[in-house]
Computed example of a mutant assay.
Amino acid sequence: MSQQSLLSPVTRLLCGLALCLCLPWASAQDLPVAVSVTGNVATVRVGLPSQPQFAELTLAFDDASGLSAASLGVSARLVDVSDPALLARLPDGSVNQLQAAFPLMLTIEPPAQGGLSFRRTVHVEVHTHALSYVAGSPLRLFKAPIDGSFRDITDDIAPGSIRARGTTGGFSQFLVLADLRATSDVVAAKFARLQTLVSQVPLAERGPLQMDADSAQAAYAQGRYADALNALDQLRARVQDRAGLAIPDEWRATRDADNIAGELLASANTLDFSIGYQRDYGH
């Protein structure tokens, strides 16, 4: 048996991604985007002179108002994968690895007077053939406020060649990168965010959600992954039931509303993904 055949699929992927670092991408440059909107779904196609369909971004809103190409405020940019300022925005620049084969930052910054608003969540998918899929892929979808810190919002990594999916209760910037942190560290960070979001829920609604979050965290700590996922399902169901009634659930381009319900749902979704990943692939 050859040495190459002994490598796991994930190891082979990482080796291939490392080789991509030699590709001669130019440093930061803007790319053209074409935006189309149908109902609650916006599709953004990002092109290069050599690859007219370099990437496609799909945004599926639960319930949008004033959605149009102009109101989204979408832009795309190739970034320098070794830029210290960009690496400093990642949780750990030594193990959060931007890929030279896909050094794309997508920015969604709706203009304040553009009229866009939505309730609950937006389901985000970044699709590209520049990266390859394997089971257990370390590729993840990260999100940050403009010039702020990035965090993992991944709900799913699917083939085709890569479809990185996540959920958000707001915007602005997105990256697809390889996250080589220990899964247990990722889960711990996501539980911390979930607990912070629960603490922002109106006091009258907080108790049951706190119980669900605590139950999920305790079950996870004991290795009872199915129980942890069930508790997150209960939390999501409670949020969906009370969203817009007792838990604020609207995002507006004027930035004068807090979409707590949307952020809670997004937080539970990505935590669900990481717990499932640890169950299936280990730490």
Rank of each mutant, 00 (worst) to 15 (best):
V46K: 14
G169F: 02
V10M: 09
L177H: 07
L23C: 04
P248V: 00
P32K: 08
N259D: 03
T121P: 00
E250Q: 15
L21V: 07
A130N: 08
A243I: 12
C22F: 13
N259W: 06
A221R: 13
S5T: 13
S117G: 01
H127F: 08
V126W: 03
A243G: 15
E109T: 11
R120D: 14
S27F: 06
D258C: 05
A246E: 12
L197D: 11
Q29S: 14
Q99L: 15
G244E: 10
A158E: 07
R140C: 08
G262Q: 00
L59I: 02
A231G: 10
G39K: 05
W25Q: 15
I275D: 10
I275H: 11
S172G: 07
L7G: 01
P103A: 07
A144L: 08
Q195G: 03
A28T: 12
A34K: 15
F150H: 06
A69M: 03
G262I: 04
E56V: 13
P84E: 09
L72C: 04
R206G: 06
L87D: 09
L17H: 05
F118Q: 04
A76G: 09
S267D: 08
S68C: 02
L90I: 13
Q4E: 15
S75I: 10
E205H: 00
A164H: 00
D212W: 12
T107I: 06
T254G: 03
A135G: 00
Q3W: 08
A188V: 07
S137R: 02
V134S: 03
N259G: 06
A34S: 14
G115I: 01
D185G: 09
D227E: 14
P32F: 12
V126T: 03
L106D: 04
A55Y: 04
G73C: 05
L6E: 12
P138S: 00
L78V: 15
V79S: 11
G262E: 08
W251C: 06
D83G: 11
S68I: 00
A189Y: 05
P111M: 04
F174L: 15
F118S: 05
G148K: 05
I247G: 08
C22D: 12
A246G: 13
S71P: 00
C20S: 15
N259L: 04
A192K: 06
P84G: 08
D233H: 13
A112K: 11
A178H: 07
F102D: 06
E56G: 01
D214Y: 02
S172E: 14
R238V: 11
R151D: 12
P145L: 06
W251N: 00
H129T: 12
S2M: 10
G282K: 02
P9C: 04
V81Q: 12
R252F: 01
L175R: 05
F174S: 06
S2V: 02
A70T: 10
D258L: 10
A26F: 11
R12I: 02
A237H: 13
T154D: 04
T121N: 01
V44N: 07
A261H: 03
A28H: 13
G170C: 03
R163L: 00
Y277Q: 13
L6Y: 11
M1Y: 08
F102K: 09
D152V: 02
A226T: 15
L57M: 11
L209Y: 06
M211W: 10
E125K: 12
L265M: 08
P208T: 03
H123P: 00
L106K: 03
A219H: 01
P52D: 13
L229V: 14
D147Q: 12
D179S: 07
V201A: 05
H129W: 04
S161L: 10
F191I: 06
A218P: 01
